[in-house]
Amino acid sequence: MKGYLGIDVGSVSTNIVFMDEDTHVLESLYLRTNGQPVVTVQRGLKQMRSQLPANTLVKGVGTTGSGRQLTGIVAGADAIKNEITAHAVAASHLVPGVQTVLEIGGQDSKIIILRDGVVADFAMNTVCAAGTGSFLDQQASRLNIAIEEFGDLALKGNAPVRIAGRCAVFAESDMIHKQQMGFNLEDILAGLCEALVRNYLNNVGKGKEILGPVVFQGGVAANVGMRKAFERALGIEVQIPKYFNVMGAVGAALLAKEAVSRGVPTRFKGFSVADREYKAGSFECDGCPNLCEVIEMAESGQVIARWGDRCGKWATALAAREAAI
């Protein structure tokens, strides 16, 4: 079997998908990053290898997410792309004709406007984390409910309580007040979903023309309460694609396919990457008062990448090799 690997290394989760040549997703993995991107990717690749038939041939690899550069170097990627492009590519592949992508992940949220299959505009949350997955996570655990139940409970609320959604800190204290006044949990949760959607549309989606079909993806799309709140606010049906929580990885695999279609052989180092030893080290450069923390990645004892320096002194020392990746 032949196909493509897509790896999305985000702040909260690391997702890996395997896609066959006809772009069907055959396997997908959703792992917690736990602050150790390289180890997580190695673990994921090992798991992927065991799930795929032994004669599998990887024709290309794509990486995305905030850990894309690092993972790209470790795995040997053919396409290293930012998550906005990756998400847009995946959405327009799975939902042809999509015009708006709402994406809410662990630490960030974004909106992507597509016209004629091409990204026409986008925005990402800048200075505010209210409305992202980790805030919902935190509130769920404060109320002692499993995050999986959050959405269903919110759906049961028929009189959503008004909650200040502009800032995560305001939202939390407002929720506590409403709780103490005796509102029931379902209505508070429904109110929270509405507040977050309002904040998202005002903050991330401000000034954007939201036209259907609308796709909602990212980890938070699992929350049916959020989906309903979006539908109510927008007045349009909101679709949730089948692979909503691994869309970045799907996009990365599609981009890898595109990259190798130009006839270049893949740079993938093979699943054996999972067994190699990677060591990250760091040192403080004392060349100027910035005292940059320079990070080094070594593969089997040999330095393969450096980054973290503002001036580029260390990063460009390996530039010739980086250009090859």
């Binding site: 792309k81 930012n82 906005i84 091409v118 990204v119 505009d121 986008f122 990402m124």
Partner: peptide
Amino acid sequence: SGEAGLITRLEAFIDLLQRKHEQ
């Protein structure tokens, strides 16, 4: 001072311009 967030936005913006240009 983290550059990663900036680079992501720049990259996505340039991708957008590039695709538009190709079209």
